[in-house]
Design a protein around this nucleic acid. Structure first.
Length: 274
DNA sequence: ATGGCATCCGAGGGATGA
């Protein structure tokens, strides 16, 4: 089971990119961010024709998130992050697909720092931690995936010294992300590829992609039940080099089937008997 | 240190992004 996250940067302007990538990689679940389309302008027919059911939360001009599932309809469990009834920005949607609860999010950028946008980001992170506690305590197999707008460590930035005061990398933002992980979530890509330079975003400016001046902003966090099922993780980096691309590339994980997880003991037993 | 590019809306640039 492949679960991917992709900040599409305008789903109608970029529908050809999305369809080409779906056909090329056939992910089972997709979290999309930055639809930049109102609810009624989501390209439901094109996505259905590609073989995907979808739930989405649109917004005029900005934000917007969706969950796609190959060959079935996601069972929506929540739209909008709880904790602030006055928050009108479309940044969170959650659904069950094939026994996995998938939370798709688009965290606020937060620049400039300091300022009201940064305060909103910090408040959103606090609400996410509260809700993630509930998800963790449920014991369900959960993936929280999306554009977190946070580089977790210095290894996730092409030139960390230039980003220390930025809302994507400031100490209190990284601390909030670390506190989220400390609940027991696993950063799947970093877990399988420690010490590797991995980016998911390259600015449109200054030839950033060709220079590999990137940031790792898009993450997939696993609840403990899913870690033994994790068999692969990566970034579809080449998508950033296609014509008319998003400034983000898709990131993905691969999970083996529920019940097929090979614990060391079972693996050893199988090796002895087989 | 700055500006570079791209989205959307809507009809001209303005807001936003990272």
């Amino acid at each position: 089971m492949r679960i991917a996250t992709f900040n599409i940067n305008g789903i109608n302007g970029r529908i050809e990119i999305l369809l080409r990538w779906l056909a090329a990689t056939t992910p089972d679940v997709v979290c999309l961010q930055e639809l930049k389309a109102p609810q009624e302008r989501f390209p439901e027919a094109a996505i259905s024709d590609a073989g995907y059911g979808a739930v989405w939360l649109g917004q005029k001009s900005w934000n917007g998130v969706a969950l796609l599932a190959r060959g079935c309809d996601p069972i929506e469990t929540r739209r909008g992050l709880p904790g602030d009834a006055s928050d009108v920005q479309s940044r969170y949607i959650e659904a069950a697909v094939n026994g996995v609860l998938v939370a798709g999010l688009y965290l606020p950028n937060g620049n400039p720092r300091p300022g009201p946008k940064f305060d909103y980001k910090m408040a959103w992170l606090a609400r996410l931690r509260d809700h993630a506690t509930m998800l963790m305590d449920s014991g369900a197999p959960v993936v929280i995936a999306g554009d977190f707008n946070v580089m977790p460590t210095e290894a996730d930035v092409y030139k960390p010294e230039r980003w220390h005061d930025d809302a994507l990398f400031a100490p209190e933002v990284r601390a909030a992300f670390a506190a989220l992980l400390a609940q027991g979530w696993t950063d799947a890509i970093r877990h399988l590829h420690p010490g590797e330079t991995i980016y998911t975003f390259w600015d449109y400016f200054r030839n950033a992609y060709a220079r590999d001046a990137g940031l790792r902003l898009d993450h997939l966090l696993l609840s403990p039940a899913l870690v033994p099922r994790l068999t692969g993780a990566g970034v579809d980096r080449d998508v950033r080099g296609w014509d008319h691309p998003s400034d983000h590339a898709p990131a993905w994980i691969e999970l083996n089937a529920d019940g097929a997880a090979a614990s060391p003991r079972r693996k050893a037993r199988r090796a002895k008997t087989g």
